[in-house]
Design a protein around this nucleic acid. Structure first.
Lengths: 245, 245
DNA sequence: GAGTGGTCTAGACCACCAA
DNA sequence: TGGTGGTCTAGACCACTCA
């Protein structure tokens, strides 16, 4: 009789293994953002499983917003470039729900080195090179967010002030088109804080004005952290929307 | 030949119809919170569809946290009473990630009538009777949240200060056991605000101290709004966690 | 061992889209 | 009209729980 212990301990559904294979193809760049991946039937043949099993793997990636299904057309690699989903991670909306024009003003862009805290957060060694960006985001001409962004310099080799300034507010679309790095999820930690001198001046507020502090770590394929960000937001006419399920 | 136009216009997947039927049984109280629902095979026989179709409907309700599947045991109606998921909608955690003891101190509990704003938010008529509760939540002995809760009086008939005070912090477990009203989702809107007199006193802060304002509307089966809530939170040692996908 | 949910298959048919 | 994803079925077998 066959010893099933090992089999049982290492049991992993087929569709889960297929999901890993698909993710590897995405990491490897076999299918780039916006492109169509092979049909379910082709994938089933390639991996030698039934269409239903491929379907379940693709479904999982689709609910994670990594793939996008379009009936009658095909399945596509999600992208931040697409219209309509540009500011996917920006949850701040105006109190009256109006559409707003976003402007992006670069304050600074310089190199630095990772201390132990950022080394841990971004999964780097202490002393690894970093890029530090500070910018001001304005909604309809009024400055509302003071952003402090920290990136690992190696994967973003060649980034500079021009590239940051050129994009129209969405850093993630730029990461994707310029560096092939696609962010798939993020963790945020929110607090209320009092505005300090530098930030108060940039936003045109008095010192001590209450700001919504949004600390974020964004992850790319394979749950690798690729960006740390602190946004300080004026919320007298805006709010952060969230749905709990 | 049969005219398929009507069929096509009103097309709705079978599993979606099954999902509606299951939801109606939940609303009707056929299966109460914590109870086990019939097995997939039984449901398939009852609705005259295949097991796979029932499975898809149950899967959908399970991802919405309305049902809970337990392999080898059965499928159960989700409940706020269960250990471990008590404070499902409370996203506030301490900076160091420690477990904390929650205390609930009632400040006031009185009747009022809906103005146009609350009538709209809670889907009531202007002038409909309301219950207004104010309370203070303390974590490990330190007051951290000033809550203002508004409920429609009719479905919560008989609610009073005792019932609010008896529960141990989770209003939702109390709504469920005392009134059979189970909240399944909520929408939140976050801002940073300055503490005003009444709140500052209750929380032991100076006026103007930055607080995280969390406005929430909670919904029961069928997306019916059943609670409005405003929480004002001290966040110097705590933060609101959120995941973006 | 009986019962439950979980996986996997093979195949039929439907809805949607583009050429 | 052909290709894509979407639905539905029927049946086999696996993993988990509990008496």
């Amino acid at each position: 009789m066959i010893d099933e212990t090992i089999n049982s301990a290492s049991f992993r559904p087929l569709y889960d293994q297929i999901k890993v294979l698909l993710t590897q193809s995405l990491i490897g760049g076999e299918w780039r953002p916006g492109e169509m991946i092979p049909s379910e039937i082709e994938l089933a043949a390639r991996f030698k499983v039934s269409q239903g099993t491929v379907r379940k793997a693709v479904d999982a990636l689709a609910t994670e917003n990594i793939l996008i299904r379009r009936q009658g057309k095909g399945t596509f690699v999600a992208t931040h470039k697409a219209e309509g989903i540009k500011l996917r991670f920006l949850r701040l909306t105006s109190a009256d729900g109006q559409k707003e024009v976003l402007e992006n003003a670069l304050l600074s862009c310089k190199r630095s080195k990772a201390n132990s805290h950022f080394a841990k957060v971004l999964d780097l060694k202490v002393g690894a090179p970093l890029i530090e960006v500070k910018r001001l985001l304005s909604f309809s001409g009024i400055p509302l967010i003071y952003d402090h962004i920290i990136l690992p310099a190696t994967p973003f080799k060649g980034i500079n002030a021009n590239r940051v300034e050129e994009n129209h507010g969405s850093m993630y679309a730029m990461y994707e088109s310029q560096f092939g790095i696609r962010m798939i999820r993020a963790e945020e930690s929110l607090k209320a804080v009092a505005a300090e001198t530098e930030v108060a001046e940039a936003l045109g507020l008095k010192i001590g004005f209450p700001l919504l502090s949004i600390k974020r770590v964004a992850y790319t394929y394979g749950d690798r952290p690729m960006e740390w960000r602190l946004g300080l937001c004026v919320t007298d006419n805006h709010h952060y929307m969230n749905e709990l399920e």
